[in-house]
């Protein structure tokens, strides 16, 4: 039996979530190095040219394929469908999941124990996880918008949050100003 069941709650500094995220995934065959010949590279260029931010990205390759998962704010989707329309190969490979949200937990301090316990907490509550990445200080998990509250509850059961901590959402977005 895992030692987790007898262990005290671990401390975490905070939880942040973002709603209305879409996951855009591309799986494509690859031989050789990742280059501009890849559909994912074309997709990154199109997003950049149209000033669309990728809030979370993971890319991993094996011998024959490369898989790219990008999260963007859902209100960009209409624009994205429009800009990929002239590129049938990209359009065909792009899979889209709607109505998702991210939950970020910090700080992780590079602790295996903390990561394991978060995955355990989400797994036990059957919270779907569509993507996950780590940054220098936090983990970010992509789940369904409807499951964000449940995910926070799962964390509260397994971790100690600072007193009076409330999960918060970013109340602003950054916009490019052309000079």
């Amino acid at each position: 039996m895992s030692r987790m069941r007898t262990e005290e709650k671990l401390n975490i500094g905070g939880v942040k979530f973002t709603e209305n995220i879409a996951l855009l995934s591309i799986t494509e065959p690859i031989s050789g190095k990742i280059s501009k010949k890849n559909t994912a590279m074309l997709f990154f260029s199109l997003l950049s040219e149209n000033e669309i931010n990728i809030s979370m990205l993971s890319m991993i390759r094996d011998a024959k394929t490369v898989r790219t998962d990008c999260s963007v704010a859902e209100d960009n989707l209409h624009k994205i469908y429009k800009i990929i329309a002239p590129f049938p190969e990209l359009k065909e490979r792009l899979e889209v999941l709607h109505n998702l949200g991210t939950i970020s937990i910090y700080p992780h301090k590079s602790l295996m124990k903390l990561l394991g316990k978060i995955l355990f907490a989400f797994g036990k509550k059957k919270i779907p996880v569509y993507n996950m990445t780590s940054s220098i200080s936090s983990f970010t998990f992509l789940t369904e918008c409807d499951c964000l509250e449940k995910a926070v509850e799962a964390l509260k059961e397994n971790f100690k949050l600072p007193q009076n901590h409330a999960p918060f959402q970013q109340q602003f977005c950054i916009k490019h100003v052309h000079k």
């Binding site: 190095k33 993971s58 991993i60 220098i136």
Partner: peptide, 11 residues
């Protein structure tokens, strides 16, 4: 050769 990449937050 890029084996994997991950972008999250500011990292």
């Amino acid at each position: 050769e890029i084996i994997a990449a991950g972008f999250s937050g500011a990292a």
